[in-house]
């Protein structure tokens, strides 16, 4: 019995390893691999771009991973990826080649059943710094506000702190989630929640609030009326190589920018 099992085991293993190796030879030699990592806000859009790009150029493989803006910047500095993605501007000392692929608004979202349609910038700041804790203070029912922020290191949080919080700190009693998706998921299921997510991800399941009376839309961002915006960046350590440039060119082409626009983002040339 032992012998039989041993034989089966090794055969399976060998076949398995060989098949992996074969695949490697069949594809690995001809295909160009581009690895991209970083911001989870940028990732879904780049994944879509990559899907289209690979359909047109089957000799490319594009590997898109999350990890967060900071990790993307770090990976780029260490040359472990071809391109980094960031949803915040670079800090001093982070010397990389920046390519703005588009602009994105950060929208403040609540549950669709929430009667409040707009807040002022000060009110949002007061909610996230813990000064306003009850919906009653904003003219709704007597119920604790379930505010949700992002974790330390997130590019969205970084931009939110810079653009909305100014010098105030986000309160400790506020819930923390580690992606746009999970913030949106809580806001979509909790009637008393408020959070902030990328404008491109807003759909019917959540309601985007007007800030100081300005509706967050593509046009209000373009005119500069809606203030909470940030760039989505590709980063490379030095000049990108030819294959990577080909993908960047695609992203910046009319076709690539149209795809981004369809997702609710604002093209880099506008």
């Amino acid at each position: 019995m032992l012998k039989k099992i041993f034989i089966i085991f090794t055969t399976v293993a060998l076949v398995f390893i060989c098949s992996c190796g074969l695949k490697e030879n069949r594809q690995g030699k001809k295909k160009h691999l581009i690895t991209i990592a970083g911001s989870t806000s940028v990732m879904p859009f780049v994944e879509k771009l990559a899907e289209y790009f690979m359909l047109q150029k089957p000799n490319f493989i594009i590997d898109v991973q999350g990890g967060g803006s900071t990790a993307g910047i770090q990976a780029c500095i260490n040359n472990t990826v071809h391109l980094g993605m960031s949803s915040r501007k670079l800090k001093e000392g982070e010397r990389l080649n920046e390519i703005v692929i588009c602009y994105d608004g950060i929208s403040i979202v609540v549950h669709p059943s929430n009667p409040i349609n707009g807040l002022s910038m000060e009110q949002v700041r007061a909610i996230f710094s813990g000064k306003i804790k009850n919906w009653k203070e904003l003219g709704w029912i007597d119920r604790r506000i379930d505010a949700i922020t992002r974790e330390e290191g997130s590019g969205t949080r970084g931009s939110f702190e810079e653009l909305v919080m100014k010098n105030e700190e986000i309160d400790d009693s506020i819930m923390v989630q580690d992606s746009n998706g999970s913030v949106k998921e809580i806001v979509a299921t909790d009637p008393y929640a408020i959070g902030y997510i990328s404008l491109g991800l807003v759909d019917k399941r959540v309601k985007a609030l007007t800030i100081d009376g300005v509706v967050p839309t593509v046009s209000s961002i373009k005119t500069g009326a809606y203030k909470i915006t940030r760039p989505f960046l590709f980063l490379s350590n030095g000049e990108p190589d030819d294959y990577t440039s080909e993908f960047i060119d695609f992203v910046l082409s009319k076709q690539g920018q149209d795809l981004l626009r369809k997702e609710g983002l604002i093209g880099s040339y506008e």
Binding site: G21, G28, S179, G181, S182, E185
Partner: peptide, 20 residues
């Protein structure tokens, strides 16, 4: 190949559920 990154079913489920 074994040097590629990959996703297991459990991780996929976690991401699907958590990000809604």
């Amino acid at each position: 190949s074994i040097m590629d990154s990959g996703r297991t079913m459990a991780v996929h489920f976690y991401i699907l559920a958590r990000e809604g």
